[in-house]
């Protein structure tokens, strides 16, 4: 089988690590060969962060490069655009419509590009944009944005929902499970 490549992108502190752990647990349980790659360090301080997830029968490289990505799951609008070169022909971008200003925008050195998602669509990208922040807050915390997004992706992943919920139980600490279940459901149906 062909290797599937996913990128989880966002801003340091948005919880992409938990999302990738969820995917890792799910895909391992499914019996795939799995590789994940993330870069820590400076990127934790509010910088742009990217996690690669690849699975299939046999996966060699842990990284995803130009034109290879099947799904970009973006926690923030700008970040979806930043990594769009990686999307393969026919790939899909799932993006949270949240805006987080990067430092050059905060200082006035740059402007947050308005209509960035329309720009992506105009360039031929398949963009599935939705607000993950509101359902996350309804579930109990803005931090649950990651699981809302994963729920949304789950519904399009071709992997059965009960496999996802089992992986969710395995990944999330018990005391946050209720909140994350709600977040996942909201994303799944959203």
């Amino acid at each position: 089988m062909k290797t599937t490549s996913i990128m989880i992108v966002g801003v340091g502190g948005q919880g992409s690590l938990l999302a990738s752990r969820l995917l890792g647990n799910l895909l391992t349980a499914e019996g795939y060969d799995v590789k994940l790659s993330e870069v820590h360090g400076m990127s934790q301080r509010g910088g742009s962060v990217v996690t690669y997830v690849r699975y299939g029968e046999k996966v060699y490289s842990p990284v995803v490069t130009e034109g290879e990505c099947d799904f970009i799951i973006s926690f923030e609008k700008l970040e979806a655009a930043r990594y769009a070169d990686c999307l393969r022909r026919g790939g899909k971008i799932i993006v949270n419509t949240q805006e987080i200003d990067p430092m050059p925008v905060i200082t006035g050195a740059a402007e947050y590009p308005s209509g960035i998602l329309d720009e992506l669509k105009a360039r031929g990208f398949d963009v599935d944009a939705f607000d993950a922040l509101t359902p996350a807050m309804e579930a109990g915390s803005a931090k649950a944005v990651n699981i809302v997004l994963m729920g949304h992706f789950a519904a399009r992943s071709g992997i059965a929902k009960e496999k996802w919920t089992a992986a969710l139980e395995q990944t999330v600490p018990a005391r946050f499970l209720d909140m994350n279940r709600k977040a996942f459901e909201a994303g799944y149906g959203g």
Binding site: S43, S48, A81, A84, P104, A109, I116, R123, F125
Partner: peptide
Amino acid sequence: KQGDAPQVPGRPP
């Protein structure tokens, strides 16, 4: 690749 990514402001740490 599907297309070219638009230029966006950097997001340094």
